Amino acid sequence: MHICLLTNEYPKEGFPHGGLGSFVKTLAEALVKSGVKVSVIGLNYTPNEEIQMLEGVKVYRLKRSKLRGLAWFFNSTMINATIASLNKKYPINIVESPELGLAFINKIKNINYVIRLHGGHHFFAEAEKRGINRWKGFQEKRSFQKSDAFIAISRYVKSHTETYLSYLNKPVVYINNPINTKLFTPVLGNEKEGQIVFAGTVCEKKGVRQLIQAFPLIKKQFPKATLEIYGRDWLFPDGSSYMQMLKDKELPLLGVIAKDLHFNGAIPFTEIPSIYAQAEVCVFPSHMETLGLVAPEAMAMQKAVVFTNKGPGPEIIIDGKTGLLCNPHSPRDIAAKIIWMLEHKQEAQQMGVEAGKAILERFDLEVLVQENICFYEQIIKS
């Protein structure tokens, strides 16, 4: 079986990437270990073309066109040419992409096309209360029409997406994103008193601003508390930095306690477990998620986790048993949940143990990679 994954975010040393890139890397390497041939095709982070073999995964990074107004055409042409060339040498069974990824892909006979629902333009436009961009909306609808099947990473993303887009009576299966529980494994004794950790893209929809606003309330009861923020910056349409906006507008309001809040930037995926190991509480107050890998990863390490009560939050955490859910729009509620964890250390530790058990049952990499392979086989046979 030969699977071709389309993404521009496959991790590359020295360049930040998001949860999608981490997921694709985890899945791709696990598929290879299970005897599946995997190729990844996407646009490069740098202005050149590269082909790499990484842990058995063949990664094609294409030179990105920046020709204003026509970049989409030239980039799609390159991707289509690479798929066609690769298919001639090593016949491809499945081409998989996120929601918009098939819009300009030329379908080839005997290749099956799959969209994995990570949360597309329609999904997040509604969640973030912004209008549908006509160009992106067109691409997403066109992409859905070309897909032969869909994989939803959470029940919420499946149900919420289908309020805006039709699956056109094509097969839809629900498979969680797997967690590498060999990487995200409990590490005892490394916690730093009062350390609160956030990991993820530093942007509005991840609830970072509300988390910062909650910090003074936490400091009143726990003066030694620190807030460590890890993740890549997000840029506004004009190119300005969201992180810098927070530093300019939110940090001055904190006064002297601003010295205990640190923006640590993006770190390699493999270093995240050591960051979580130092945390007394891991907090992810996202306004919206399709699944949110960061919370399950921290839970796999048996950490005390505060997650959003929106979207798939209740799918991931049983509130009060495997972690706590917060209203991500309320700094007061975020603070209250973190304070509870810091005040009730023994109960929080037990939640972490229960969380670890739950993740092993639902997100184990070896189990879920076999579910993916079984679904691929069904689509190929059909």
Rank of each mutant, 00 (worst) to 15 (best):
R61C: 04
T270Q: 15
K259Y: 03
G352E: 06
K12I: 11
A214E: 06
M1C: 06
D364M: 12
K219C: 07
T46I: 14
L54Q: 15
G356D: 02
G189M: 02
K66L: 10
G56T: 10
A295S: 12
S147W: 05
S34T: 08
F269H: 13
L27H: 02
H160Q: 14
N80Y: 07
I275A: 09
N190V: 02
V172S: 10
P331D: 10
F363V: 04
G207E: 10
L368K: 01
F284M: 09
V32Y: 00
E377F: 02
K337I: 00
H118E: 12
N177M: 05
F284N: 03
C203N: 14
T181H: 12
N264H: 12
G200T: 07
A127P: 00
V24M: 07
F222D: 03
L43C: 03
P312T: 14
Y113R: 00
N133C: 02
S166P: 07
L168P: 00
E140P: 12
I51L: 06
D333R: 04
E126H: 13
E55R: 12
V202D: 06
I316K: 01
T270S: 14
S143F: 01
K25G: 04
V114G: 03
K249N: 14
L291G: 03
V40D: 02
P47S: 03
K89Q: 13
V172Y: 06
K247Q: 08
Y376M: 01
E128I: 11
P328T: 02
L293V: 01
A258F: 01
F215Q: 07
K357M: 14
L291D: 04
H2T: 13
Q349L: 14
Q378A: 03
S240G: 09
Y230P: 06
N112L: 03
R142K: 15
A84C: 11
K220D: 13
F23L: 13
I115S: 00
D233Y: 07
E9D: 13
K25Q: 15
A277N: 02
E347M: 09
H2C: 11
F269Y: 11
S85N: 15
I151G: 00
Y10T: 01
T290V: 07
R68M: 11
A348E: 08
A279I: 07
G56S: 05
E9V: 04
S159N: 15
D233E: 06
M78D: 05
G194T: 10
R332Y: 09
I229Y: 06
